[in-house]
Amino acid sequence: MKFFTLLIFVSISSFIFADEAAIVKTYKGQAHLLREGKEIPIEIGTQIFEKDTIRTEAHSLVGLIFKDNTRMSIGQKSEFTIEEYEFNLGEKKERFTTNLSKGSLECVTGLISKVNPETFKLKTKTATMGIRGTHFIVESE
């Protein structure tokens, strides 16, 4: 039995127990990911973490799927930062604060909006959006 348990732990270690917030699922044109002051190229499948900023150029769009299945489409000439993201139902700690400092965004909310809607906050230049199980567009000009 001990051997069996050990085996499980060894084999499990190769899978990711990740803090990843989202992955890039759709991508068009020229966009950049800013992480700790560095520019990282974006491609489909790129992992997105808390504190990352996505900046899209003209005619560039990025689509994200978050860990909690929230989906976002980021429009052209946008700047979008994931300020806080934590989704771990076991620890009952959810945080979802994002900031669209310019541009446009469509959002279909996921599990966080069901289990803990108060934690979802989308900030813009002036306004803040909160949600209750929602699909919406925000445009900041």
């Binding site: 909006s113 306004a127 949600i131 199980g133 919406f136 567009i137 925000v138």
Partner: peptide
């Protein structure tokens, strides 16, 4: 800033504050 609420895929409409 403009905000527009869309129906969800199941036809239900959420709330946006």
């Amino acid at each position: 800033v403009h905000a527009i609420l869309l129906p969800q895929e199941d036809g239900k409409v959420g709330k946006l504050l």
